[in-house]
Structures are given as C-alpha cells and as structure tokens.
C-alpha cells in the first residue's frame, strides 16, 4: 500500500516539477522568440522579444532580449537600429563577458555599415581595457575585418598575423595586396607614355587606342606648328591632343581603380560564400 502510494506520489511530483519549474513562462516566450529568430522571421522575433521585455518585470531577460533584437535588426540590415539595441543591451549586461559580446557585435555592425573608423575606435577602447590573450585575438580578428572593409588590405594582413603568423585571412589579404596595382604609378607612367597606364592595369586594347589617338593628334599639332600654322596648331593641340592626353590620365586612374575593385570583390565573394569562420 505504502509502496503504491510513494510510486504515484513520485509520478505526480515529477510531472508537476517538470511542468512548472524548469520552463517558466518567460523562458518559454524567450525560446519562442529564439525559434522565430533562427527561422529568419526577424520582424516577428522582434515583436516577441519586445513582448518578453514588456512582461519581464524582474528584468531577468533584458540583456538577452535587447541583444537579440539588435541581432534581428542587424540581420535585416537596419544597422542604426541594431546599434541602438546593442547599446541598450550593454547597459543591461550583468558582467564583463556580456559587455564584451555586445561591444564585438557593435563592431561587427559598424563593419557591415562601413563605418569602419568607428569600429576601429571601439576596438581600440576594448584593447585598452583588456589584456587577455583570447580577447586580444578577437580584437585583432575584427580589426582585420574592419581593414578589409576599409579596403586597407595591408593593415588587415598585419592584424591577422598578430593572431597567427600563417592565418588563413592573412594570406588572403597579402594575396590581394600583391595583386592590386598602384593607382599613382599607373597615372605617372601615363604622363610619360599615353596609354601605358591602361595597358599596365590590364586594358591593353583601350590603352593601345589611347596611344593611337595621342600619336595622331600629337603629330597633327606638331606638324601645324612646324608649318607655321600657329592657330591650327593651337586649336588642334588644345581641342584634340590635350583632350586625349588628359583623358588618357583619367582613364588610367579609373582603369587601375576598377582593377583593384575587381580583385577585392573576388576575395570578398570568396569570404562571403566559402569562408567558414566568423564574419561581420
């Protein structure tokens, strides 16, 4: 009899305890909002996190909910809103680790928003207050990404090399830096030999045509002066030769910039689709 009673009592107790205590209604709501977040339903997820915040009188979930709202806005590319909510999460952070998580998210949002100088500023501030090796690695990692988005591949490679001398991203950044052409050099050689800059940056046909036009108008101008047709020489020189000569320098600069963008885009595409590590 007693044995039977204890058996049923235990059964009921297990049920009651498992029904009520491990998952209170706030945690159920938090899980529900997280599920929406995981399925990329960001608008609804924000609503549910906000509902959680509204009913969470003890502010038990303030940090987590604000943090997640920030992540939702970030995923929806609403970076200003995301930073606003991350900042509120940092106010509600219970310890240094939570604060750090928020700061790194703010950095990542700034990288995505392309406000890279702000990202660097925050990283510098974190660095001042933390000497831990693991944190330093994170700082350098995100600093590297910041430089990538700022199109500063040399500094990016330096930042990644501080984590590991043969870091995968360091090698990629060095590859970009190596492949990129110097805009100044491209322009400079175009001053001496029209079309050379374009040829140097890979536009051989365009560079050859530029060279041809300059040659033709140069000949016509010099010929006019040689035959003492000063007015003709001035008109052809200013309206023809000078136009092609200046155009050659501008084209060289544009061509070099385009080539550099193409090189950077190729690597960014790789980072977006193939790279497995953390991304902004």
């Amino acid at each position: 009899m007693k044995k039977l009673f204890y058996k049923y009592f235990l059964l009921i107790e297990i049920f009651v305890v498992s029904s009520l205590f491990p998952q209170d209604r706030l945690s159920i709501q938090f899980d529900y909002a997280n599920k929406l977040f995981q399925t990329s339903q960001y608008f609804d997820a924000i609503t549910e996190y906000k509902r959680l915040l509204f009913f969470d009188e003890a502010k038990k979930y303030s940090y987590k909910a604000y943090f997640q709202i920030g992540k939702c806005y970030k995923a929806g590319a609403k970076f200003d809103e995301a930073i606003k909510y991350f900042s509120t999460a940092s106010i509600n952070a219970a310890n240094e680790n939570e604060k750090l998580s928020v700061y790194f998210e703010i950095v990542r949002t700034n990288i995505s928003r392309r406000t890279t100088s702000r990202a660097l500023q925050i990283l510098d501030e974190i660095e001042k207050e933390n000497t831990n090796t693991f944190i330093r690695d994170s700082i350098n990692y995100w600093r590297g990404w910041t430089y990538i988005f700022a199109d500063d591949w040399k500094n990016a490679a330096d930042a990644f090399s501080k984590i590991k001398s043969d870091h995968e991203l360091k090698k990629l950044c060095e590859q970009v830096e190596k492949e990129k052409v110097s805009v100044t050099f491209t322009k400079a050689i175009s001053y001496f030999l029209p079309g050379a800059g374009e040829v140097y940056s890979g536009n051989i046909l365009s560079g050859s045509i530029t060279f041809g036009w300059n040659l033709l108008f140069g000949y016509l101008t010099i010929n006019s002066f040689a035959e003492e047709r000063i007015f003709d020489g001035m008109v052809i020189g200013s309206l023809g030769w000078l136009r092609f000569y200046r155009g050659n320098i501008q084209s060289a600069e544009e061509s070099a910039k385009q080539k550099n963008i193409a090189i950077a885009n190729k690597i960014l595409k790789y980072l977006q689709y193939e790279y497995k590590g953390a991304k902004p």
């Binding site: 009921i12 049920f15 029904s19 009520l20 209604r25 159920i28 709501q29």
Partner: peptide
Amino acid sequence: LCVFVITVVSVNAQKLNDDF
C-alpha cells in the same frame, strides 16, 4: 488523483503560457 493533478497542472501551465 494522478489524473486529476495532471489535468489541473496542464490547464494551469497552458494558462500561464497563454497569459502573454
């Protein structure tokens, strides 16, 4: 008793979740 308690607890738990 067991059925009764389970029913009461389930209804209450549902009610708690529905509150929001």
